[in-house]
Design a protein around this nucleic acid. Structure first.
Length: 308
RNA sequence: GCCGAGAUAGCUCAGUGGUAGAGCGCGGCCCUGAAAAGGCCGGCGUGGGGGGUCCGAUUCCCUCUCUCGGCA
């Protein structure tokens, strides 16, 4: 009897489409535990703003990587990968199935496809490069990158200062070209049997849903949650959650509450659009079309049917 | 019913006698240690309908329809 390949499931899709609740029902059916694949739900105290499911729901199925760090701490892909793989390992030891659920495309890809060998961020180098960016502009850094790593420069747009800085950082630290290092990555896709499901809803309906969800966030107390968060210094990752800068603008009198809400809705819609661009090109995803009125149980059933 | 203002991109509007722009919205795309971030690209729209003047009208004139404001 051939050794059966270990299985691993993913449920992805744009924000607000209803992944979380459907995932709980699905996880129960297939005896899986859920691993969040979301760059913001890792933060504690950011419950309403990230539309985290309530603790009560979480007891039905074990959830991992929610509420694992404080908002003042930085988090990133590498930490996520480390944490997620540790959970995976643990689940296998006890014979449970991992079901990744979330919409952070990069985190998803880093798990499936891997991350190139460790060149962690270097705060000193980065700060220096950022100073140069401020004084000399992105074109200067871009030219510098072109001299040391042409392949990387070709791939990165001259205005994309973050990626230019990252590429320079890698070179300054290791003497290696990021374009070369990046080729070396191994993800779970090799070792495991990976199945990816994506939820799809008509764009118009998705946007309606996102708008409605933002309305609901306000009713649930988004404003006071964010006010509380802003009392202490947030990490740069946590503060980039949609809703922080918009409400900050409101607190500072830059715009009205209504304007802040519109901005949050718009930025969420744009975020969903970017997610769709990301996932659309991934041929591994099996798309599940859902309807406006589908309840989580219906959605879960649709996925379940595609499993067998 | 009368008087006035207006009808131009999905929305709000600008402008011009030689067939049009802005902001917002929206669409497409890139993405390997900040990713809910960051970056790139995208506007031919019967210029409300009809008629007239003119070499030529979205721009001037007439008329109709509609919208808004005021007066009855």
């Amino acid at each position: 009897m051939p050794l059966e390949k270990k299985k691993i499931f993913f449920l992805v899709g744009p924000t607000g489409i209803g992944k979380s609740l459907a995932a709980i029902i699905l996880a129960k059916k297939i005896k899986a535990e859920i691993i969040s694949c979301d760059s913001m739900q890792v933060y504690r105290k950011m419950d309403i703003i990230t539309s985290k499911i309530r603790p009560k729901e979480r007891t039905k199925v074990k959830h991992h990587l929610l509420d694992i760090i404080a908002p003042k701490e930085e988090y990133n892909v590498a930490k996520y990968r480390r944490d997620a793989l540790a959970v995976c390992e643990k689940l296998y030891l006890k014979g449970s199935l991992p079901l990744f659920v979330g919409g952070t495309g990069l985190y998803y890809s880093i798990i499936i496809d891997g991350l190139f060998p460790m060149v962690p961020e270097d705060k000193t180098i980065r700060a220096k490069l950022n100073r140069q960016l401020a004084s000399k502009g992105p074109k200067y850094l871009y030219k510098r990158l072109g001299r040391i790593d042409q392949a990387a420069a070709k791939k990165i747009h001259p205005n994309d200062s973050r990626r230019i800085i990252r590429a320079l950082e890698v070179y300054l630290k290791t003497g290696d070209k990021i374009s070369v290092l990046q080729k070396n990555r191994t993800g779970l896709g090799k070792e495991y049997l990976v199945k990816v499901f994506g939820l799809h809803l008509h764009r118009r309906l998705l946007y309606e849903r996102i708008n409605a969800r933002v309305d609901k966030m306000f009713r649930l107390g988004l404003v006071s949650e964010v006010r509380g968060l802003l009392k202490t210094k947030l990490s740069k990752t946590a503060e980039s959650a949609i809703g922080i800068k918009e409400l900050k603008g409101y607190f500072e009198g830059k715009y009205t509450l209504e304007q802040a809400k519109r901005l949050i809705q718009r930025n969420s819609r744009r975020y969903a659009k970017r997610q769709l661009t990301w996932f659309r090109k991934d041929r591994r995803i099996k798309w599940i079309s859902i309807n406006k009125t589908d309840l989580p149980s219906k959605v879960a059933l649709k996925i379940w049917k595609k499993l067998s």
